[in-house]
Design a binder for these strands. Structure first.
Length: 229
DNA sequence: GCGACAG
DNA sequence: ATCTTGTCGC
């Protein structure tokens, strides 16, 4: 698969911010989904030993949540980890991995935020806009925003708010387990995004897409500890 | 100035 | 992300 939108990645921090502001204009915050048969889960990790990034993509069949296709690639580090510019580090290796994917997904679930971002354009929005495929941001922790604790039962949620604007939802995917942060990536509403995440998390805290992609990365890393910055 | 800060 | 410590369930 190739992205619909292409742009340079060797940017300065300032140009990266500028690009986010331009690309964010293309982001669609309402439901624009066709029938969802295949869902992509993506994950990227840093390998300290090889000083490389490992990107994994899994394609799950929506009805069974079974893996239809998967790919793992290694890539050099193009950009440092900077909160707010996460996509400039993770997307290059993901583009390399997507080149090998044959089954086009109708939905992408990202390990990171969507519009719950300083410029409302996190990893999920960026990836969604590049491929023009509906995308959901799904983070284990928040980047910004305030929220009240959602109810303790699976399915409970409360709004994630930044400067009076609802930028996402804090969603409880399992009873009594720490909630996750769901936000609009591209071509999907927050309500629909939460429905999908719940559907994808029948048993664990994280959606199956993220779990499977994570598992694939760890398998390649050989269980070795991931590096730090 | 101090804390917060997706992975 | 990783690391540590503590608590609970098996």
């Amino acid at each position: 698969m190739e992205p619909v939108v292409k742009h340079a990645w060797n940017l300065s921090e300032m140009d990266a911010v500028k690009l986010q502001q331009e690309l964010s204009l293309k982001m669609i915050r309402e439901d624009q989904l066709a029938e969802v048969n295949y869902i992509a889960g993506v994950d990227v990790a840093y390998s300290e030993h090889s000083d490389k990034l490992i990107a994994a993509i899994v394609i799950l069949e929506a009805s069974s949540l079974h893996i239809i296709e998967s790919v793992v690639v290694e890539d050099t580090v193009h950009f440092p980890y900077i909160p707010g510019l996460f996509s400039f580090r993770e997307i290059p290796p993901l583009l390399k991995a997507f080149k090998q994917i044959k089954t086009a997904p109708q939905l992408i679930v990202c390990d990171g935020q969507g519009m719950a971002h300083p410029r409302r354009f996190g990893l999920a929005s960026h990836l969604g806009v590049l491929f023009d495929i509906p995308a959901i941001g799904c983070g284990k922790t928040k980047l910004l925003g305030e929220f009240q604790d959602p109810g303790r039962t699976r399915g409970s949620s409360s709004p994630l708010v930044d400067h009076g604007e609802v930028i996402g939802a804090v969603l409880r995917t399992q009873d009594h387990i720490k909630p996750i942060f769901v936000s609009i990536g591209h071509r999907i509403s927050l309500a629909t995004a939460c429905e999908w995440i719940l559907k994808l998390s029948p048993k664990y805290r994280l959606p199956e897409t993220t779990r499977q992609a994570d598992q694939l990365v760890n398998k390649v890393l050989g269980g070795l500890p991931r590096g730090q910055e």
